[in-house]
Design a protein around this nucleic acid. Structure first.
Length: 892
RNA sequence: GGGCGAUUAGCUCAGCUGGUUAGAGCGUCUGUCUUACACACAGAAGGUCGUAGGUUCGACUCCUGCAUCGCCCACCA
């Protein structure tokens, strides 16, 4: 292909690699991501869910970023001062585990280093790898304000954590208590219920005989964890269980240890389960703990925090819990106390982080009283101040909030926000203050020791929307940007994070943290399997960006699925998205090439208001698309919005308008050029939130050729988002071009059916009095697109001049008939059959419509416009049917 | 034990206030390198919308039961 010297080379295929980095730098340099505080305008704010500081980009991040950034860019283009605030999370256990693993490769534990050196090591790790995730998020095109980036351990958010703790402590909403908690022996810390994942495991149910102290027989209990019998302090039966009622009040001898424990009655015992008798282990089972509380049973703890048994376990001290289980079972067998071993499936709690079986242990932890905090948070959703999308999750939210339990917030880790509590060595008093104390608040002693625990990571996450903006200080940012707008995240952290943000936001600021929660589903692999490192089916989004481009990845992740539903990502979808980007690229190449052919924009009317039917049609369609997109965006139906633009761009702008424009351009008529350019420019705007890189790149190449609009933007990222202009809606143009398209399609169809050579033109006679002027105006386009020559525009009278029947094929369209002489190619019998079949269809539809329009109930109850539409359709069908009948009769 | 979701073309999925001849991408079949694009163009085939009922003038869309798959919550040892 030869090019004149003046024409710039535009590559034939879009290459994202040449564009993305440069465009991102351009946005950064332009400062477009940092909003200007303008009191006269309401800002749009979206807080990025902070990824783990040492994390690497996975599909969850990619999806979340794609969705958030499209919302953010849309709002920014609507002229709202827009803040998309990024940040990272210190991710307590997760990060500590990673660093511990690294130490382990040098045969070191954190205890070898000591607390201070270990924390320093983690900080080094964070400094080294902490930037990785942000660089990866940039590659997706996230338009976040990096000048406001926050880390949960930053001074500001840390002070927010401290302030919240002290305030809630003083209000009595944070307290210290000894009770049963989930304990991970591997991580050596307490866990909240949410951090425990239950899995179905196969196990054994052991039936163990406990001999009565009075020698009068025995009672048999069933358990899956025989080792816990070392901590039994009772045997319980249901009070209504006749089998055992005579035993209540007696005592049994605990196997192995020989302790004497009572038999008690408690409603919690299910008579149908196992033997109907339950060994009660308040120290190591949550249900038993409650029974123990009701009956004042002593609590025995037989376990160390690393999962080995302690000195309460007799000679099992120091042995791992699972080894003890085996040894106890053996011992019971030897003693003849093991009656039966039943195969059994039940769900076992595992640590969410490391997968170890969690052990319920009684220990002293800090707790947050949740019920009082949940109440206003429930109300905020009930009264609509906060909306959850998709709506079905509001029920899930209510269910959890109504049954909320106190939250254990202390973690026996070293990495995190240290609990701001000092214990007095003199009087055992507790000092909790905003500033580090020098003396005990109770006795004034300086023998203070700080609590060694840190807070659950989610404690600081819960404050994110306000702590990042400066709270507890009344900063300008907080004042202007809070409460935020949309909160977008995966539905898997509805409880972990969303619910807690709502509670803490309301508590700390007396205001909601955001007004809308948008929850997305999981990204799955092509087989629908959840991606996980252990399964090895995790694809690296960065690889996909390298292969297909960030825009294609974003488009693939945000189309063809709906909020809250999981989605599969596969190669085909990536290819389709890349192809779409390429389609846009080439349409732009065509338009820009025409602009560069020296066709001056000097005399253009801008925006164009053309008279040509095709131009009016494409502008009308553009405005209808803009209206639809606006509707979908407002309803958070991002996939539908994109489909709308995609279909218009590909199927109407490219396949029809652009092809039609070639006809006029070849004839030396340059009038389509401004329209081509204008529609392209608006399409770039419409598409920018979804495919930011390619649209910005094309836009830069395009705008130099266009007339300057008032308030011309310096970059597409800040160009105004297109709003529908109803004055551009043009019914006549739409129905006119609709008829042209129908006609061209019918002739093409005929060409394929009769296997007409592509280069062979056909003669066609159009008989369509109702749209004669449209056909005349579009004759050149029809000739080219349908390969017709000559195109004879006839009237009813000229129909008689047609060649003899049997030589022609008649295409009976909605508003006209096209006859094409095909000579010997036409098989009279086949032609009659074809038309008869069509007639049959038309008549079928007509009969159905007519029946509906005869139905008085329909006429009485259906809305007027529906009835009117049906009447129109019936009339059109009637006309068409009549013409088919006439044609058939001529065939004889 | 509760709660939720899914079930639409061979595959992956849209279709959200009930009114089309039920759509898209991929795949399949037939043509075409037609100077924007073969990452493309033109044309075609392919669906009793899981199942049984109900509401309605009208149901893929609303209600109920059932089936299959998946998810969440819950202290049954």
């Amino acid at each position: 292909m030869t090019r004149t010297a003046s024409r710039r080379d535009i590559p034939k295929a879009y290459d994202p690699k040449l564009v993305e980095k440069r465009i991102y730098d351009l946005w950064m340099d332009g400062g477009y991501f940092t909003p200007q505080i303008d009191r006269s305008r309401k800002p749009y704010v979206l807080m990025m869910p902070p990824p783990n500081v040492t994390g690497e980009l996975h599909y969850g991040h990619a999806l979340t970023t794609a969705l958030e950034d499209l919302m953010v860019r849309w709002h920014r283009m609507k002229g709202e001062p827009t803040l998309y605030l990024p940040g990272t999370d210190h991710a307590g256990i997760a990060t500590q585990v990673v660093v511990e693993r690294m130490l382990a490769s040098d045969d070191l534990s954190r205890h070898d280093l000591g607390r201070q050196r270990f924390v320093e090591t983690v900080w080094q790790w964070v400094d080294r790898y902490g930037g990785t995730i942000n660089e990866q998020i940039k590659r997706l095109g996230a338009s976040c304000d990096w000048t406001r980036q926050r880390f949960t351990l930053d001074e500001g958010p840390s002070r927010a954590v401290r302030t919240t703790f002290v305030n809630l402590y003083k209000k009595g909403l944070i307290y210290r208590g000894e009770r049963i908690v989930n304990w991970c022996p591997r991580c050596a810390t307490a866990l909240s219920d949410l951090e425990v994942k239950h899995q179905e495991d196969s196990a054994s149910l052991y039936h163990i005989r406990y001999v009565l102290e009075d020698g009068g027989g025995a009672i048999t209990v069933a358990t899956t964890r025989p080792e816990t019998l070392l901590a039994d302090t009772a045997v319980a039966v249901n009070p209504g269980d006749d089998r055992y009622s005579h035993l209540v009040g007696k005592s049994v001898i605990l196997p192995v240890l020989g302790r004497v424990i009572p038999i008690i009655a408690d409603e919690a015992v299910e008579p149908e389960f196992g033997t109907g008798a339950l060994k009660v282990t308040p120290g190591h089972d949550p249900a038993d703990y409650e029974i123990g509380e009701r009956h004042g049973l002593p609590i025995v703890n037989v376990m160390n925090l690393d999962g080995t048994l302690n000195d309460n376990a007799g000679h099992y001290e120091g042995v791992d819990r699972f080894d003890v289980r085996r040894q106890i079972v053996q011992k019971l067998e030897v003693d003849g106390l093991l009656e039966e071993v039943e195969d059994y499936h039940h769900s076992v709690g595992h640590c969410d982080r490391c997968g170890q079986v969690v052990e319920p242990i009684v220990s002293k932890q800090w707790w947050m009283r949740m019920a009082p905090l949940a109440k206003p948070a429930i109300e905020a959703v009930e009264d609509g101040r906060i909306r959850i999308i998709p709506e079905r999750f509001t029920k899930v939210y209510y269910n959890w909030m109504h049954n909320i339990r106190d939250w254990p917030i202390s973690r026996q880790l070293w990495w995190g926000h240290r609990i701001p509590v000092w214990y007095c060595g003199e009087c055992a008093g507790v000092t909790v203050e905003h500033e580090d104390p020098d003396a005990c608040a109770e006795c004034g002693s300086d023998r203070l020791e700080r609590d060694s625990d840190v807070l659950d990571t989610w404690f600081s996450s819960a404050l994110w929307p306000h702590s990042t903006l400066g709270w507890p200080d009344q900063t300008e940012d907080l004042d202007y940007f809070y409460p935020t707008g949309d909160m977008e995240t995966g539905h898997d952290i509805l409880f972990f994070w969303i619910a807690r943000m709502i509670m803490m936001g309301l508590e700390n600021t007396s205001d909601i943290p955001f007004d809308t929660v948008y929850l997305h589903g999981l990204v799955r692999d092509p087989d629908g399997v959840k991606m996980s490192k252990s399964k090895g089916n995790v694809l690296d989004p960065l690889d996909l960006i390298d292969m297909y481009g960030a825009d294609a990845l974003r488009f693939a992740l945000t189309t063809g699925n709906s909020p809250g539903n999981d989605m599969r990502l596969n190669e085909q979808k990536m290819e389709a998205s890349r192809n779409f980007a390429n389609k846009l690229w080439n349409a732009a190449r065509y338009v820009i090439t025409n602009l560069e052919r020296g066709r001056s924009s000097g005399g253009w009317v801008w925006p164009p208001s053309p008279t040509h039917l095709e131009d009016r049609w494409v502008l009308s369609r553009l405005n209808r698309v803009a209206a639809q997109v606006d509707r979908y965006m407002n309803e958070y139906q991002f996939g539908e919005a994109q489909r709308e633009v995609h279909d218009f761009l590909w199927s109407e702008y490219c396949d029809w308008y652009l092809e039609m424009s070639k006809v006029r351009l070849r004839a030396g008529d340059e009038s389509p050029v401004p329209v081509l350019a204008f529609v392209l420019e608006r399409l770039l705007r419409l598409l920018h939130p979804f495919m930011p890189f390619i649209t910005e790149e094309i836009w830069r190449n395009l705008v130099d050729h266009l007339p300057r609009e008032a308030d011309a933007p310096t970059a597409l990222i800040v160009a105004a988002y297109p709003q529908a202009d109803a004055s551009m809606f043009d019914e006549a143009a739409e129905s006119g071009i609709g008829a042209v398209i129908e006609m061209v399609r019918a002739i093409r169809n005929l060409r394929a059916e009769f296997r007409i050579q592509p280069n062979q033109s056909l003669e066609a006679t159009v008989d369509a009095p109702a749209i004669r002027r449209v056909i005349e105006a579009e004759a050149a386009a029809i000739r080219t697109m349908a390969q017709v020559d000559p195109l004879i525009i006839g009237s009813s009278s000229s129909a008689t001049d047609r060649p003899a029947s049997g030589q022609v094929v008649s295409l009976v369209l909605a508003q006209g008939t096209v006859t094409v002489p095909l000579g010997g190619l036409v098989d009279l019998v086949q032609e009659r059959a074809r038309l008869s079949k069509e007639l049959e269809q038309v008549e079928g539809n007509r009969a159905r419509l007519a029946a509906r329009l005869r139905d008085e109930k329909f006429l009485a109850k259906a809305p007027g416009d529906v009835v009117e539409r049906e009447r129109q359709r019936l009339a059109t069908l009637g006309d068409r049917g009549a013409r088919i009948t006439e044609t058939l009769s001529r065939l004889g």
